[in-house]
Amino acid sequence: MRAAIAALAATLLVPASAAAFTAFVSNEKGNDITVLDTDSMEVIATFDAGQRPRGITISPDGRHLYVCASDDDTVRVFDAKTYQQLHTLPSGPDPELFVLHPSGNPLYIANEDDNIVTVVDVESHTVLAEVPVGVEPEGMGVSPDGRVVVNTSETTNMAHFIDSESFEIFANVLVDQRPRFAQFTADGSRLFVSAEIGGTVTVIDPATQAVEKVISFSVPGVPPEALQPVGVRVTSDGSKIFVALGPANRVAVIDGGTLEVDRYLLVGQRVWQLAFTPDEKLLLTTNGNSNDVSFIDVESLEVVKSVHVGQQPWGVVVAPN
């Protein structure tokens, strides 16, 4: 928690005029990473990332980029400045999504084949624990204080609450079909879990694990089965929740006060994952079937630009500095 706030404070000190951040997009089919400058909104580099890169995240200090190279059965760690691979981490087979502890260590990886969550020390490159969870673990979230790790299992349809110290599951919350993603609010007071096939987002009170609300979606002219929530991001003040709706080609904006859908923003095809710039002025979306990234202005809620990246962009992360 303290480290996270320190990191946040550091970014706030950066003058507005210098708000050019670097975004990294994993291209699942292209086997590479596209690097974007968020100020010019242009591609500045592309580098190889191994086979089928999907989940992507970055260390709190912005130095290390972590990429799930799913078909290489490993997590590749790159220098975020030079784009050189530094080393790999043991991940178990077919890693797809992971989450870093707010302190930057350890890394929690969902292993779909083995129904476990693997906890990896990113410094010693060793496996600290394997936590048995439900069938096909996928989404990973961590509470801002780092005490609770949440994993969603796609076929069991639960959010599993794992104590990050004992590695024991202490609660399970049933959600709708095929939960894909778990996202805490910055103050840890709410947890959002998206269910791709169920077509809903479940809002959970992490303190009691009670379900506060189940949010569903509706867009005129879009068949209900195409409304498939995947990536979720929440502004740090909790006022806006953004949900990528997959083949509906839209991002839903949910009001953090009422938990009602405020509007739908048309982006590219099969919108999958989302990432804010550190100043939260922009939200980037990966659009897998149109091979582009959309930039959403968070204040005005307008889609300001789409930029062509690699083949089948999957995940996105923006460096904190």
């Binding site: 303290r2 204080d145 005490r147 104590d163 202490f170 399970n172 303190a207 009691t208």
Partner: peptide, 21 residues
């Protein structure tokens, strides 16, 4: 901050006992 952290710790302790379905 310290207060919140303490509170969360208390919550967790109680959950570990009572939250399992």
């Amino acid at each position: 901050m310290r207060g919140i952290r303490g509170l969360i710790a208390v919550c967790l302790a109680s959950l570990a006992i009572g939250a399992q379905p």
